[in-house]
Design a binder for these strands. Structure first.
Length: 272
DNA sequence: GTCCAGGCATGCA
DNA sequence: TGCATGCATGGA
């Protein structure tokens, strides 16, 4: 990969194994918006970005070298060798055609707080509705970063809300979970950095202590927001996929099971 | 009207 | 430990 800095834009050449449409709209992140010119716009950690891809060239618009170094390099995992990862996964003949068909799905390294909140909202819910709830949450309680794009509200901000405030966003029975989660995080009862440093099983145990967080939400949070590539969330779609693996997961998934999971999840949603 | 969605807490055996 | 049940909402 080659990086060029051009005033407010950053151009990355020779980027392999990245499909923006699949990665930004495959059910791991809920806030990216596709524009008429096929670029995508979003806000991460309070910073706006417009991103597009042409061939193997990625263009980051309206951003800075500092934002790239501090946020986007890690968020999109530009320095991880996804080509090698996909080749490893394809040692399993069952997933091989799925990796080829949806080649370029990456796991985004999202903000821990946003992911935890988002996946508490996600439970027993569909992706369209999840997006709507999160959009209302951000428009109501986030800060407008630029023209119609809002930050994800902080735990401190949400800790001031009541259960009724969360219900007003359409969160349904999850409102009480969000109310307690916000106060717990704002009060310092949950230390994200400490959890990131733990082994997977211990990190999962920590998240399972949270009211409203079960095994599925914990695994999603660990995979999408805490850097655990081997966390393997199983929802109703993945339960259907697991019927194809009656003897358990293949050895080539070790350490990267979460990435395999995202390809299989996307396949299931389109085919089952 | 019923069924379903990136499930969880609770009660009970 | 495992299983049944209730839970908010909106689209199909």
């Amino acid at each position: 990969m080659n990086i060029k800095y051009d005033s407010n834009d950053i151009i990355l050449e020779n980027v392999k194994c990245l499909d923006l449409d699949l990665t930004l709209d495959c059910g791991q992140a809920f806030r990216w918006v596709k524009n008429k010119d096929n670029s995508w716009s979003g806000v991460v950690k309070g910073v706006y970005l417009n991103i597009s891809k042409n061939g193997d060239t990625v263009i980051l618009r309206n951003t800075t070298k500092e934002s790239y170094e501090n946020i986007w390099k890690d968020y999109f995992d530009f320095e991880k060798d996804y080509t090698a990862i996909c080749n490893t996964l394809k040692q399993d003949k069952l997933i091989a055609p799925t990796v080829d068909e949806y080649y370029g799905i990456r796991i985004l390294n999202q903000d821990s707080w946003e992911v935890l909140c988002s996946f508490v909202i996600s439970q027993q819910n569909n992706i369209k509705r999840i997006k709507g709830i999160i959009d209302r949450l951000c428009r109501t309680y986030g800060d407008e970063i630029c023209d119609g794009y809002f930050s994800f509200p902080s735990a401190e901000k949400l800790s001031t809300l009541t259960v009724e405030d969360f219900e007003a966003l359409g969160t349904g029975y999850r409102a009480k979970y969000l109310e307690k989660l916000s106060k717990a995080v704002a009060g310092g009862a949950i230390d994200f950095e400490k959890i990131k440093a733990l082994p997977l099983d211990d990190a999962r145990k920590e998240l399972l202590k949270i009211y409203g967080v079960g095994i599925k939400v914990a695994n999603c949070a660990l995979l999408f927001g805490f850097g655990f590539y081997d966390a393997f969330p199983v929802d109703v779609w993945m339960k259907r996929v697991m019927a194809y693996y009656p003897d358990g997961l293949p050895q080539c998934f070790d350490g990267i099971g979460g990435i395999a999971q995202q390809y299989l999840f996307h396949w299931a949603r389109n085919n089952l």
